[in-house]
Design a protein around this nucleic acid. Sequence first.
DNA 1: TATGTTATATAACAAACGTTATATAACATA
DNA 2: TATGTTATATAACGTTTGTTATATAACATA
Lengths: 192, 192
Amino acid sequence: MGPKIKFAKDQIIDAAFEIAKIEGIDNITMRKIADKLGSSVAPIYVNFKNLDELMEAVIVRIISVSQQLLSEESQGDPFLDMGRASLRFAMEYSVLFRDLVLKDNHYMKDYDEKMLPELIKEMQKDPELEGFAVDELKTILLKMRVFQLGLSVMAANGLFSKDCKIQDLMDILSSAANDVILSARLSKSKFK
Amino acid sequence: MGPKIKFAKDQIIDAAFEIAKIEGIDNITMRKIADKLGSSVAPIYVNFKNLDELMEAVIVRIISVSQQLLSEESQGDPFLDMGRASLRFAMEYSVLFRDLVLKDNHYMKDYDEKMLPELIKEMQKDPELEGFAVDELKTILLKMRVFQLGLSVMAANGLFSKDCKIQDLMDILSSAANDVILSARLSKSKFK
DNA sequence: TATGTTATATAACAAACGTTATATAACATA
DNA sequence: TATGTTATATAACGTTTGTTATATAACATA
């Protein structure tokens, strides 16, 4: 074998992630990573074939961070938990959020489509959503996802005042959820 | 004076806009513009101090295009007109929409803050919104802006199927508007 | 016609980029 | 100890970028 490894794959991804967190994914360069590591570019090319391969790894890391946030939120309501996680990610990693949401990368699309049926299942367990058909649940879910996305983008863009806490945004989110559900409930009973 | 002007300021901005429309603002380069004009970079530097100055002009052009779309929508309801304009811009200029919305440029913020009081005024004229206090109108407006932004981002990201027309998205938007207004109306009458 | 101005073309510069060739040195193994 | 392997550093290559120095040519004016 050769000499001891001073710069492992994970450290390299860490450094690249730190750069992306502040400057955005597109501003990752080999030399910046090397500078942050205190090395040359050589260790990077030993661990990754080229920049594209490393970027793939960075995106995987970003997604895992966002899922880590999601796993930390578990106050019972899967809806609001997801909303809180999304808002946290948008606020704590605003640059990455915009990089991820505003480019159409297949990761997000795949992830979304995988989550949808699962969310519908969760909604069917929710007593507050009892009596709704699957199609109605889908409509409610769509509206909520739209609202959550808009709120997250606004948060990431710093459109809310500085002392605006996540809880304040969560209040808006759940208020909108109530609006949607209440309205759906009413238009349902109207035809009964 | 000198020789005839072959490449005027507007043509240069046009060329840069075309590039930005397809490749994004960050992919504008002096040489690409020159190629599109069929010139060298010299005419560009005669008309603009540097790339930054030209980019400012391009952003102004982009905003004017989006306002052009808004002025074309005037079916009566300022709310839905704005929503339709936003959706059209997001769909017809998806790259530019993401460039504009996902960077926090002061233009959008200024524009937003200028429009808000005007929108509130418009809402006060709306018979459907009669009886609401200004604070309640502000809450309704915020929710609608959030929803409209989320829907526009989704549209720009191509998250809806190809045969999804603007009218389909408008239906969702106005349905959400009804949800919000109806719910606000109900929680108002509850305490009367 | 001669002169000054300026729109344009060309070519070069420096900087930053991804990538790679080369050298060095550390480690495992024979 | 000698050898092969490999992690790392250095430096260079080619490309692309913004910018600029220089030359040319067209036009207005004296």
